[in-house]
Design a protein around this nucleic acid. Sequence first.
DNA 1: ATGCATACTATCAATTTGATATATAAAATC
DNA 2: GATTTTATATATCAAATTGATAGTATGCAT
Lengths: 184, 184
Amino acid sequence: MDVKTVCLGMLTDGPASGYDMKKCFESSFGHFFPAGYGSIYPALATLARNGMVEFVEVPQEGKPDRKVYSITESGREELLKGLSNLNPTHKVRSEFLAIVWFAHLMSDEQINTVIDNKLIEIEGFLKLFEAFPDCECDDVPKGAQFVAGFGQHMAESIRTYIKDNRDMLTDLDEEPDVKVAIGS
Amino acid sequence: MDVKTVCLGMLTDGPASGYDMKKCFESSFGHFFPAGYGSIYPALATLARNGMVEFVEVPQEGKPDRKVYSITESGREELLKGLSNLNPTHKVRSEFLAIVWFAHLMSDEQINTVIDNKLIEIEGFLKLFEAFPDCECDDVPKGAQFVAGFGQHMAESIRTYIKDNRDMLTDLDEEPDVKVAIGS
DNA sequence: ATGCATACTATCAATTTGATATATAAAATC
DNA sequence: GATTTTATATATCAAATTGATAGTATGCAT
């Protein structure tokens, strides 16, 4: 599955421009399937060339024209093909874990900063979920709810693991600062 | 951080060929930082060109020559630069979650198979950890232990979440098959 | 005997990344 | 009042990565 398939999937929710899709990748999709302009625009161009999507150019005032894409019938068939993978991947690419793997080559201070920053990042991410608690309200598709819950569960799980095990990584956990009794 | 940095890191454990490194990516590193021949060989070529690594060609009988690479002093400095990122990424690219997001476009049977297969895959992955229980034994660096534990914890967490929430995704959880009492 | 696994190297097209270019207007900051 | 940033929108480019394939030889299994 590539960005083309995901773009087709997004268009089943209604017409959208490349810019709209980029925002969608930023807000939700990108957390588990990232894409930037450099993959979105070529994907849309290819899909249009092959008749999977159609577009109309909507003139704007003072802004570039919008190209608003819609999925076609061929596009819907292509999408179902793209989704029909019974062994889909789930890949992680983590600079964080690579750095931690080589912790013994680095200073305790460096590692501690990396860990602190990662915990802050996770905390910020988890705050996003407090906003809409278990949004099983409206017409949000069950799949999206499952994926959102997955993300939240993962973030909590990572936070827990890091907090519970970070002291493995530094020689002295938190510079003991033990005042040895003088004259003992 | 790119594959070059990780290759340098691997070489701090001792000299190795591209083939050796590929096996290392397959067995451990690849679970959180994947790389194939197509990135390893170009990485080693670039590193050699820039004096970050040196290599000797070791003739073999009936097999192609081995090119055995070693890290240089410049390489060690370059590695430390590569590791000195205080905000390293942790990215997920999941066809699995993308498919699940669009579950409403698919049949229950398809989704159930995808989920079953994923659970089997996770089960298989977790069996790898039973082999060496908490390998804090030898001289395995703490960083590697932390990362291995991280992987195990994540896999368990994903398994739990999927098992607890998979029924969100299908209309009827497991084809009820309720035999209604006749004549009630 | 024919195919598959292991041991090595390496390359290639297609895809993706991350940054940048272009252009205008509104909002924020100084 | 001037400057910077943010938002709206398009698009492209070099570099990196993916996933597959090619080449060459030995051994093992069916």
